[in-house]
Simulated scan of single mutants.
Amino acid sequence: MSGLRVEHPRHYGRWIASIIAVGILALILFDILGNPRFYWDVVLEYVFSERIVNGFLVTIALTVASMTTGILLGIVLALLQVSKVPLLAALANLYIWFFRGTPLLVQVIFWYNIAALYPEITIGIPHVVTFVTLDANQIITPIMAGLLALSLNEGAYMAEIVRAGLIAVDEGQREAADSIGMSKARAIRRIILPQAMRIIIPPTGNQAIGMLKTTSLVSVVAVPELLYTAQNIAATNYKTIPLLIAASLWYIAATTLLSIVQYVIESHYSKGAGPKSGQKLGRLILDNLTTWKGRQQNPQGTTPNQGKVAEGATQS
């Protein structure tokens, strides 16, 4: 009895769709690259210019500072939300409700004009003793106003992300920590948070990528970040589109790098939680290579395992 022959169906529709998609993409790229109105020479001239690079560094600094502050604030708010003290939980929910309910652009402008409400910032006990008095106009600079708005707003969104991760951890983990005499703070730090990270990391990575582009909102208060710098240059040479393209290239590069960092962190915290998307892709490629090698060694269309199965069936 001859071995079983495996017939692989030919998916002509997939090939036709792929060829059409590649053709459309090639036409779009050809039109964009061949259009002289894009002024690609101007793009190449300014994409690595000192002013654009400095603006990009300001954008990165704002992103890192805002995300770091937002994550720390989000953790505190999430812990207050799940606490058993009703007043603390209510205050945390009120904070989240307010900052998620108002547009970020409004918050940026509000903090920029906070000196109109509080010309002086005092540190001390109200109406009792004052330790330090500061001039609000000197403290709340444009970049400080942008940082405050981005950080406080991000803290509200991160609180919900962290809370979702905390409540996703099985209650038995908390009971096990209590049974061995762990304090609640230590249990959260050593048991709950590490397990919750699997759920927290993916949306946090998305928030970081979103924050990178959201920093462009602070251009309205003249913070010299990437978009504001590109707009300033365009105001002098009237090449708005090329400058926007130059800025976009830096945003795309930074987004790609953040995506890679996100994948590495996800891989670290997902150990033992099943195959990840990257592992699935690698396994698929490996399986295809193994199947191809088996076909080369068995031209009749059977893999070594299939031949053994067929041989065993014949003997039986």
Rank of each mutant, 00 (worst) to 15 (best):
L289D: 13
Q173F: 06
A235P: 04
V82E: 02
P202Y: 09
G101V: 06
I233F: 05
L91S: 01
I188R: 03
T130Y: 08
E45V: 07
A177W: 03
I140W: 00
A253V: 11
V82H: 04
L148G: 01
S18V: 15
S270N: 05
W292F: 14
V169I: 05
L62I: 05
E7S: 11
A222Y: 03
E50G: 12
T255L: 10
R5M: 10
K213F: 03
Q279S: 04
Y157K: 02
F131P: 01
W40G: 01
Y157C: 01
L80G: 06
R51D: 13
Y39S: 12
V162C: 04
W15D: 11
V218Q: 06
S259P: 01
E225W: 13
I200F: 08
K184H: 08
I180N: 00
L212N: 04
A168R: 05
G294W: 14
W250V: 00
V223E: 00
L243D: 06
Q279A: 08
S316W: 13
Q315L: 13
H8A: 14
P242M: 09
V261M: 13
H8C: 13
F99V: 02
S267W: 13
I139V: 14
P86R: 09
A92L: 03
M197N: 04
L249M: 12
L62A: 03
R14M: 10
I71C: 01
E45Y: 11
P36N: 11
L226G: 04
K271L: 09
D178T: 15
M158C: 00
T302F: 14
G307K: 15
L44V: 11
A235D: 11
I167T: 13
L27H: 11
I191W: 05
I60E: 09
E154M: 15
G70P: 00
D41C: 06
V47L: 05
Q207F: 08
A89W: 07
E175G: 04
T229Y: 02
I52M: 09
L117M: 12
A136T: 15
T68E: 07
V82P: 00
N93I: 03
P275K: 15
G3N: 12
T303E: 01
R163S: 00
R198H: 02
Y12Q: 14
G155V: 04
V43R: 06
D178S: 15
G13F: 15
L150A: 00
V106G: 10
Y263F: 10
